[in-house]
Amino acid sequence: MHVQPYLFFEGRCEEALEFYRTRLGAEVTMLMRFKDSPVPTGNAEMCAGAEMSGPPPENNVMHAEFKIGDTTLLASDGMAKDAPVFRGFSLSLTAADEADAKRRFAALGEGGQVQMPLGPTFFSPCFGMVQDRFGVGWMVIVPGPKA
């Protein structure tokens, strides 16, 4: 069994992929646009029975896979109806050391919002929480006890 996060960016998927590529070194390993689908884009069956108000823009991302370090994430523009909403979870990024954590935290925070400043805690010498410009929550952590 394998569980992977699938993020719906509601029309901003390509922008998000580029953001993660430049900030975190993400590698896009697969990208399919709606225009590449063998199923007509107005067909609701294409999206597991989802009701569509009309065909999505043909250049929108239907499905993408990307890697950040050893982790593969999945992404899509989804139906691109509303702003993306990411609630009830955060992605946890383990940094090699405090300098790496600071760099990645700052990169993720560009255009986003710091929820908990990066600093020492009882469970880590360096931990913080930030929401990126797309609304995805990130927890950046250096493993190990507080020094």
Rank of each mutant, 00 (worst) to 15 (best):
P57V: 04
E15S: 02
A16N: 06
V39K: 05
C13E: 13
E58I: 06
H63K: 09
F89T: 06
G109P: 10
G109Q: 14
C47G: 15
K35F: 02
N59E: 14
G78Q: 07
R103V: 07
A107G: 04
P38L: 00
A75W: 02
M79D: 08
G42F: 06
E45Q: 09
T29K: 08
N60A: 15
I68G: 13
G88C: 03
P38S: 03
G42R: 07
M32W: 07
A99P: 04
P56R: 08
R103F: 04
D100E: 03
A50D: 06
K81D: 15
E27G: 06
A26H: 06
G42H: 10
A106E: 10
S92K: 08
E14N: 11
T41C: 07
G42S: 11
L108A: 00
T29V: 10
P40D: 14
R103D: 08
S76M: 04
C47Q: 06
S92L: 10
M52Y: 05
Y20T: 02
C13K: 10
S92F: 13
N43S: 09
L93P: 01
L91H: 11
A26P: 03
G42D: 13
T29Y: 07
P38A: 01
A64I: 08
D77M: 10
E18A: 06
D82G: 10
N59P: 05
D82L: 09
N59A: 03
R12G: 00
V28Q: 09
D70H: 15
F66T: 10
A26Q: 02
N60L: 15
A50C: 14
N59Y: 05
A101I: 01
T72W: 13
S53L: 09
G78S: 12
N60S: 14
E110V: 03
M52Q: 09
A107P: 07
A75T: 09
L91C: 08
E58P: 14
A80Y: 11
V61A: 02
H63Y: 14
E65I: 00
P56F: 12
V61G: 05
A106L: 00
V28A: 09
T71R: 14
L31D: 02
I68C: 07
M62G: 06
S92H: 10
G54N: 07
